[in-house]
Design a protein around this nucleic acid. Structure first.
Lengths: 249, 249
DNA sequence: CGTACGTTTGATCTTTCTCAATAATGGTGG
DNA sequence: CCACCATTATTGAGAAAGATCAAACGTACG
């Protein structure tokens, strides 16, 4: 929060890809515009022709698509510091929408400025490839989650993912966190109904895996929660995960 | 099939991203090794440290992950001409496995050679970003498919996607194609059971949307199949899709 | 020609959905 | 500050999609 938006962007890229000082300066020199938007605002809608790429500075957002029948699937949750819109840097029509979960500050960077930067500085291109590959890895895990896990594991899994990603950005601890989603949104993220999400949440609480007051989730048994979630953080490709991944095997 | 593996790779990159003649020559000069492997062979397993990136020259493959309970989720199907392993170019541990669906020829390119190429030639980096973004878009659609569509729509959708992707590579027509998957694999791709896949397939046939003898699927009513699938090819980001997307709205 | 794999079918069971109603909670205007 | 309203959360009862279990039937291939 105490960093400028471009410093957050830089830190994110650097956390998995080395960048030179020149690369650093080029990123910090990027033109951008800050905006504060209310919860529920759309950053981009499916079918839009994008003109900017966004960085989420504060607040939360989610990607979503709708089926022809009108039901919604949430595809990922964006947390502060995420570059929301690499898709929009190079794809000409947005294939999904991004909507704000909370009142947020976003930084808009003109599409061309980022395109030029990537063409001028291959190391930044590599960092962008890295980021998009990690995003794809998370999407693969979501396909598994929704396709092959039961309701309880799905909910537990999304809670684990959220906690670990927030912790990696120092926005939460394994103690617990403030979940910025309604149970309906949780349902749309896990391919369930809100009613069932409520029951599963109560079940997790009854079994002592979590405790909650409103949207605040506390992990009363992090180990057991990971186990029922079938959660292994390897797919997040976070720096320093290797020893953990090995230890977990 | 009458192209060299590197020419296929080049053609794929060029189909969505412009490349200069120098870029072209650099790609065609890439070192590579051809291998023929039997159906069922693994190209890479989850947890492996990759040393090569592969191009699927002939044959079919699929990405998959297993849950802790042992069930499998298929994450995507690779068709001839696909670069299978961009993930392995920059991520150090594979987060999923790739297995061959049929006897196939693959071209291995050393990881470092591709890394160097991308660093030396930003336009190729952009083409790679483009490819990975499209792959992510397809994954998002799979999350929707598995999370929010019923069994009939899921099966219909995967058939539509397969047909359109094959057609884009001139490997099939909207008449029909040879499905290289068993019903069990179809089940693992759609988050269903093989028994239910069988029933849905019979239902689609009974309703005149497809006909089939063994694995050969014929589209007897392509329009109706797309409708029940809730299929819109925009997410594939194929060149020349725009007018179709507009016409479909 | 038999063995293994894939497909098909039936019967039953379970998870999750749907519908419906009630209770909290938070925000808003008076 | 309080009453009201709109969301969100919770609970119950019944329905349905899809899973599970089990068996039979094809078909390819060694």
């Amino acid at each position: 929060m105490d960093q400028s938006p471009l410093e957050m962007f830089l830190a994110d890229l650097r956390s998995h890809s080395p960048l030179s000082n020149d690369d650093r300066n080029a990123i910090l020199a990027l033109p951008m515009r800050l905006r504060q938007l209310d919860a529920g605002s759309y950053i981009i809608r499916e079918g839009d022709v994008p003109t900017h790429c966004c960085i989420l500075v504060t607040g939360f957002a989610y990607r979503q698509k709708f089926t022809g029948e009108g039901s919604r699937q949430i595809l990922s949750v964006c947390i502060p510091g995420d570059a929301i819109d690499f898709q929009n840097m190079f794809l000409d029509i947005s294939d999904h929408a991004v909507q704000l979960l909370t009142r947020s500050v976003i930084a808009d960077i003109p599409r061309e400025a980022l395109q030029d930067l990537v063409l001028a500085r291959p190391a930044i291109g590599v960092a962008v490839i890295h980021s998009t590959l990690i995003e794809a890895s998370i999407l693969r895990e979501w396909v598994v989650n929704v396709g092959r896990r039961d309701a309880r594991a799905r909910i537990a899994h999304i809670l684990c993912e959220f906690a670990v990603r927030l912790e990696a950005r120092s926005l939460a601890s394994k103690q617990g966190f403030e979940l910025p989603m309604t149970q309906e949104q949780l349902a749309d993220a896990t391919g369930l109904t809100p009613v069932h999400v409520n029951r599963v949440l109560k079940g997790l609480q009854a079994d002592g895996l979590i405790s909650r007051q409103r949207r605040n989730i506390q992990f009363t048994d992090w180990r057991a929660l990971q186990d029922t979630a079938d959660f292994n953080r390897r797919y997040l490709h976070l720096p320093g995960e290797d020893e953990l991944a090995v230890a977990a095997m």
